[in-house]
Amino acid sequence: MAALLGNLLHKPELHFRLAWQTPAVKLYLLSAGVLGAMAWGAAMGSHVGRAHLWITTIKMPLFLLFTLALCFPLMHITLLVGGVKARPAQTLTVALSGLCTLAICLGACAPVVGLFCASAPIPSMASYLNLYVLCLVCGVLAGIAGLRVLARGMRSLCGGPVRAPLIAWALIYQFTGAQVAWVLRPWIGSSYGVDGYSLSHGLSGNFYMGVWAVLMRWLKEIGA
């Protein structure tokens, strides 16, 4: 597994060349991704602590995998329409490689985020917002790293330009992922100590309506 992860990080071309010959690679990618996501989830959950810690640890890999499961058919179709002739198993390998890279990057940031989350005061809206921005920055960095690996994987399948399917994949995953994350919230836990997860809390509204409501409230506040 260490060798596989070394290839994925250091030499993605070699990783994909090996992955086409060895179907078991998918299992290793899955396990590494789950471990990375669990570390990230534990770091975020450590802000509120107690039950929220282990709930977020379990929720994070579920969030990434459930989003992938929802998006996979559309992602495969996009790849085919974009001119990349791939079998579903190959699409899954590329998607898992990107997701595994993302999760490993998040897992690598987990000690830093965990330190800040565990030491931030509760309740404090300022510290909650700071943690939110920190997690967002880490997420964006990890997303960029994941996209780079996805691009290498697509290129190893078709050899040509892959910009269109890559952008489509990023948009599909982001669009769906935002809603799944909304349903599975809270992640960091509110500054007032939300402890645990409640489905009724998650199912109220959706991500885009939530963003719209925040935007309207903000515009009202500034008197626009």
């Binding site: 070394g6 990080l9 250091h10 890279t101 490993i104 990057c105 897992g107 690598a108 940031c109 987990a110 000690p111 830093v112 330190l115 960095l141 790293a145 780079r148």
Partner: peptide
């Protein structure tokens, strides 16, 4: 150093430091 080591290792690998 211990807290930063994992992220340093992963990101240097991804950015090509090898």
């Amino acid at each position: 150093c211990a807290i930063c080591l994992p992220s340093f290792y992963v990101f240097q690998a991804l950015t090509g430091a090898r």
